[in-house]
Design a protein around this nucleic acid. Structure first.
Length: 685
DNA sequence: AAAGATATAAACAGGT
DNA sequence: TACCTGTTTATATCTT
């Protein structure tokens, strides 16, 4: 989808860049035509030429109006593109009235090549031409409206009134006439140019040939056509020159009157093909579009249903010109392709709407009462990519009472997401409650790409996200900055909304007892006590995490300075326990720092004994903000572990050994405070 | 409705 | 000094 849009952009640019191409081409064609007729602009006056061609155009239109024989079925239709009146791309009929711009006129005046009388004549011719064109175009518009109206009626009636045929034919005639007028005028300009009166630069803003493909083509169809012909370049643009006509007529006829469109298509062919060749020869950007031709790839012609093998690009071009020249078949194929694209676009828009509705529903309903069982959850459970921690029994499908539902779609790719639809939903406070066994990694793994690209706030708590980031890291440890980076890497939301989340992360790291800070020589990193996390006791407010301020710090250092800096000492303290813990962790596939002794009485008792020892050392200490504790594991032996002290929680006998904790109660521990129900890391048995 | 959980903001301190 | 990191507190909002 994104690629498509990119292609679209590119093709649009291409179309824009080549915007002057058709005009230039037309001038060339006209010029060549004049030469072939033995006419020289210098020999034939502009006025005479204009008059002559205008008469020809009117005559051709009259002929078409009178003779409706060409309007036969597609298959029986015989090309009559040898008729002189049908040799001009009808797309020109969609051009806006073209006059000499004031700038150009001023240029002419300044050059003073012509006498004032001549200029007067030229001006009058211009004005007359413009007037006629305007009248014709107005009429054409009316005819078109009328035709479309009748087409609608016909679609309902299911039959094709003869009158409509007539209208279509009339319309065709007027298109022809407009076309002739247009060509006439351009020839007029060309004459002037040849006489040195005008210097028309390619891409000149005032060049009247610019609005080539505009005019009466319905905008959508025009856009569609651009997409269809998307990455085509120079020679395709030439094709577009007449194909644009095909499109314009297709929009009229393909739904109602194939004959008409076919007729128009065949009319468009002659000059078009000649111009293709001429422009190809002269195109300076040949190599540029050689590499980028949408109809050529991997040595194969990509024309629908063709797949002819072309060894190189020139042979492909030859093949293209020979096999896919502008004829009935190619035109029909083109129309089919257009309709394919149209259908796809229609389907896309419908799917977009559906997605929009889904997103809106999921977010708006997030505050609604309990949702029915969420298939999304089932999906995510089935395809859950479990981490070691997720493999715990708590990762079982959550209970039916789980109030929270994933707020994000599972399978939508980022390209489909219209972030604008979600962006302004407002702050989503409902998040996965980790206590209810909704594994973050399930949704997260499913929607990782989504979160990376869509500016959607992930419905997880900061703690869950931090934990996820830490557990995803190879060492199961991250520095604060790495956590930041993980957030910005994984979530577009945090890339864009840099306001508060960093502070929130720090707060969470500090307040959640599952996060353990490990100090190293060059800084510190954070790890996760996953069991503490899963126990669901996170932030305990209103209670000092570090029971005391710094006034006892010196005392602490005095009693056991090794606890602060001498890691080896503390490691020695804990070595027996570390071994046991390590074994237990390995057994339970738990990450480091996981207090895996839960349910292990032997370890519990060992841990308790250990803690008593530690308390003996630290009971005089007041764990201030920088308090440290011995390392827990061999790996941590090298680190200074910052303990988040927790008051005892008598309810949590099954709690894991928080060997990390110093478990000291500071002297200013307030027994009156409501600590009793607070969870602890350590178990006091 | 109350209590708990979480988000957010802010103050503050120490380190770089 | 500015910024980063970390802790703590207060408050608001959401969830149970």
């Amino acid at each position: 989808m994104m690629q498509e849009s990119g292609t679209e952009t590119r093709s649009n640019n291409s179309a824009i860049q080549n915007g002057a191409g058709p005009g230039k081409h037309l001038l060339e064609c006209t010029l060549r035509e004049s030469r072939s007729n033995g006419e020289t602009p210098l020999e034939v006056g502009a006025a005479e030429l204009a008059h002559l061609q205008q008469q020809q155009a009117l005559q051709a239109a009259r002929q078409i109006l009178i003779n409706q024989q060409p309007l036969c079925g597609i298959k029986t239709h015989k090309r009559n593109d040898k008729q002189p009146s049908l040799q001009v791309p009808i797309s020109v009929a969609m051009m806006t009235p073209q006059v000499i711009t004031p700038q150009q006129m001023q240029q002419i005046l300044q050059q003073q090549v012509l006498t004032p009388q001549q200029l007067q004549v030229l001006l009058q011719q211009q004005q007359a031409l413009m007037l006629q064109q305007q009248q014709l175009q107005e009429f054409y518009k009316k005819q078109q409206e009328q035709l479309q109206l009748q087409l609608l009626q016909q679609q309902h009636a299911g039959k094709q009134p003869k009158e409509q045929q007539q209208v279509a034919t009339q319309q065709l005639a007027f298109q022809q006439q407009l076309l002739q007028m247009q060509q006439l005028q351009q020839q007029h300009l060309l004459t002037l140019q040849r006489q040195g009166l005008l210097s028309i630069q390619p891409g000149q803003p005032t060049l009247p040939l610019q609005p080539f493909a505009q005019g009466m083509i319905p905008a959508e169809l025009q856009q569609l056509w651009k997409e269809v012909t998307g990455s085509h370049t120079a020679d395709d643009v030439v094709c577009n020159n007449h194909s644009t006509l095909d499109l314009s007529t297709t929009c009229i006829s393909s739904t109602a009157h194939p004959k008409t469109s076919l007729l128009l298509n065949s009319q468009a062919s002659t000059n078009g093909q000649a111009s293709v060749l001429s422009l190809k020869r002269e195109s300076s950007s040949h190599e540029e579009y050689t590499q980028n031709h949408s109809l050529y790839g991997h040595g194969v012609c990509k024309w629908p249903g063709c797949e002819a093998i072309c060894d190189d690009f020139p042979s492909f071009l030859k093949h293209l010109n020979n096999e896919h020249a502008l004829d009935d078949r190619s035109t029909a194929q083109c129309r089919v392709q257009m309709q394919v694209v149209q259908q796809l676009e229609l389907q896309l828009s419908k799917d977009k709407e559906r997605l929009q509705a889904m997103m809106t529903h999921l977010h708006v309903k997030s505050t609604e009462p309990k949702a029915s069982p969420q298939p999304l959850n089932l999906v995510s459970s089935a395809t859950l990519s479990k981490t070691a921690s997720e493999a715990s029994p708590q990762s079982l499908p959550h209970t039916p009472t789980t109030p929270t539902a994933p707020l994000t779609p599972i399978t939508q790719g980022p390209s489909v997401i219209t972030t604008t639809s979600i962006h302004n939903v407002g702050p989503i406070r409902r998040r996965y409650s980790d206590k209810y066994n909704v594994p973050i990694s399930s949704d997260f793994a499913q929607n990782q790409e989504f979160y990376k690209n869509a500016e959607v706030r992930p419905p997880f708590t900061y703690a869950s996200l931090i934990r996820q980031g830490i557990l995803e890291s190879p060492e199961k440890q991250l520095t604060l900055n790495e956590i930041y980076n993980w957030f910005t890497r994984q979530f577009a939301y945090f890339r864009r909304n840099a306001a508060t989340w960093k502070g929130a992360i720090r707060t969470n790291l500090s307040l959640h007892k599952c996060f353990i800070r490990v100090e190293e020589e060059y800084g510190s990193f954070w790890t996760v006590d996953d069991e503490a996390f899963k126990r669901g006791r996170h932030i305990h407010r209103g209670r000092p995490r570090k029971p005391c301020p710094d006034e006892h710090f010196d005392e602490l250092v005095a009693h056991s300075p090794s606890l602060i800096k001498n890691i080896q000492t503390s490691h020695a303290y804990c070595s027996p326990l570390s071994a046991a813990l390590q074994a237990s962790m390995a057994e339970n596939s738990l990450p480091l720092y996981t207090t895996a002794s839960m349910g292990n009485p032997a370890l519990n008792s060992l841990a308790n004994a250990m803690r008593e020892d530690l308390n003996g050392v630290m009971e005089h200490t007041n764990s201030n903000g920088s308090d440290s504790s011995p390392g827990r594991s061999p790996m941590q032996g090298m680190h200074q572990v910052h303990v988040k002290e927790e008051p005892l929680d008598p309810d949590e006998n099954e709690g894991p050994l928080s060997l990390v904790t110093t478990a000291n109660h500071s002297p200013d521990f307030d027994p009156d405070r409501d600590y009793e129900d607070e969870p602890v890391n350590e178990d006091m048995e």
